[in-house]
Design a protein around this nucleic acid. Structure first.
Lengths: 337, 337
DNA sequence: ATGAAAGCGCTAACAC
DNA sequence: GTGTTAGCGCTTTCAT
């Protein structure tokens, strides 16, 4: 762990000047240095265990190869891991590294994190939300390139990458429609979330497109919990004319529905078809039979966000990322068909 | 997003020299600059939106304020999120930031990641495993300070921070012993894991300390899955003299046990007491009644690892972090007592 | 109490 | 083809 060798050391070892070392090692020596010299330099570098000092390089060039990623609960939510992975892999492809800070929702820490990143002269900041939501990018962050991930910048000053909830809800409902259902319930999640409004909008659009008139009784409120799935599916089944299929606003709700159904001796999809939303990893094993659901494309979203963070010219648009339906076993034809 | 102001700009604005700006902003101006001057400098800096250029600072000082964190699946496992959070918060307290790379288990990427971090002249590297295991630190990484997190460096060249599985298993078993049980089963997980051998060792130690002779029939193999919990608990119950309590090698196994028990019409803890291991967040809600289990102290482990990464003088020891028993509702007195 | 100056390791323009 | 040179923005020593 002695003092790291510098280009000067390599130059001395190879018997050339430091400038030549720079040229050779940066790969731009074509036509500048002879191949013999180049090889001698590379050998010397390897021999000494030379490694670029990125501080020095960045100081000179004025740009760093770091992308900052700030978010509430970035580390602790299972979802954000995928966003980070997507962003990281993309950054990596472009020789960049991610510097991550999980603010835990603490505004002071967030300010400090942004500050630190700016001091590090990051190439851009990916401002990430654990749950899809709307937010205002802190003014300080706008000193650099900012991209909102899983969040929409209400002021439209930064590009945003969010899941296309509407199309997701639409396609989830279509999957049910296509299986022959015409009486389709929906159990929503917290209505304050873009996820809730978007998914519901997709549901309604699909039904109206199919010429099915809206029945408010079929749309049940919920809060995204297991418990609310249990309750809402009960309400739905107790209707004079119960639905033959239900679109659940998220997987957790769907799991509640599954259990309530099984408690009543009803089968999925024999008696009733179910579609979820989120395709949550950790819940997957608990669905018997496997749940047909809509996937939140977090990895792709992370990828897109990183790409935008690296592209200084990208306009501050909203990028909707498609949420594909994952067809598994919880959808079948309506009972008695 | 114009060119960022430098200390020279601040100096010009405040009518002092750049050196004084450095002194004042670094806080070491006590007795060097007058308070009036200092204030003028700070005002000018704020006015211009000045921010330290950490590249330049690091180049000069020779040390960075970055800690690298490399791991397989760091981003995607629910556990590692907590380790990252713990490490980050600790790093943050010491003005450091985390640069994270998830290698996805790819060796090439891992090498590249370590290389990059070394080029960034990170203060240290936290080499993290998703599952507690033994490993060899890549030679390249040893160019800097390395700390193994949730992994033990078999060559003993780097300090390691790992959960104290043995004591965890011991205390889990003690919880059962203390409730009055004397016939206690254990369902193990993959025996190749330090988690499995350690937990079993703790179990055996607790029993032998209590003067209970070892009954091999009570120790069932498993692979950590839900399914293996279902199977093993069945085997245990079918014994001529079944246990009144079972220590499950992990929560997932315990969940299988719960379900098999409920399928047989048996109650926890009325008919049988259960203790798990891991205290896995996502499974928590599925336990009815709430599971008494042993917590893997990931946040604390991350904290310790970061602290070690920052302490160049720390010896390459193994740091065992205590795994506390979380008492909930799945332990009661033996039936018929 | 303040300023001048050197130099950290690198890139890149320019000279030979 | 290769070397010389001038900074990038900062910290720090030494003058003043």
């Amino acid at each position: 762990m002695a003092q790291r060798p510098t280009m000067h050391d390599v130059a001395a070892a190879a018997g050339v000047s430091q400038a030549v070392v720079s040229l050779v090692l940066s790969g731009s020596s074509a036509g500048r240095a002879s191949e013999t010299t180049a090889q001698r330099v590379r050998d010397a570098a390897a021999e000494l265990g030379y490694r670029t000092n990125l501080q020095a390089k960045s100081l000179k060039t004025g740009v760093t190869e770091i992308i900052g990623l700030v978010g509430d609960e970035v580390a602790t939510s299972p979802f954000s891991g995928m966003m980070i992975k997507g962003a990281q892999d993309r950054a990596w492809q472009d020789q960049h590294t991610l510097m991550t800070v999980d603010t835990g929702g603490d505004d002071g820490l967030e300010r400090a994190a942004i500050d630190t990143m700016l001091s590090h002269r990051v190439r851009g900041i990916i401002y990430t939300a654990m749950y899809h939501r709307e937010l205002t990018v802190p003014a300080a962050a706008l000193d650099t390139r900012v991209v909102c991930l899983n969040a929409r910048d209400v002021d439209g000053r930064a590009p945003s990458v969010i899941p296309d909830e509407v199309t997701g809800g639409y396609e989830a409902t279509r999957a049910l429609l296509d299986a022959g259902h015409t009486r389709i319930g929906m159990i929503n999640i917290h209505t304050s979330l873009p996820a809730a409004t978007g998914r519901l909008e997709g549901y309604e659009r699909a039904l109206s497109e199919a010429g099915i008139s809206r029945d408010p009784e079929l749309i049940r409120p919920g809060d995204g919990t297991h418990r609310s799935g249990v309750r809402a599916i009960g309400d739905l089944l107790d209707l004079p004319s119960p639905p033959t299929a239900v679109f659940c606003g998220n997987d957790r709700t769907a799991l509640g529905a599954y259990q309530a159904l099984s408690a009543r001796g009803l089968e999925v999809p024999g008696d009733i078809s179910i579609v979820g939303f989120d395709d949550q990893d950790v819940l997957r094993d608990f669905f018997q039979p496997a749940l047909t659901t809509v996937q939140l494309p977090f990895t792709e979203m992370g990828d897109r966000a990183a790409a935008l963070a690296l592209d200084a010219a990208a306009p501050a648009e909203v990028h909707l990322v498609h949420c594909p339906v994952i067809h598994r076993r919880s959808v079948g034809p309506p009972k008695g068909r």
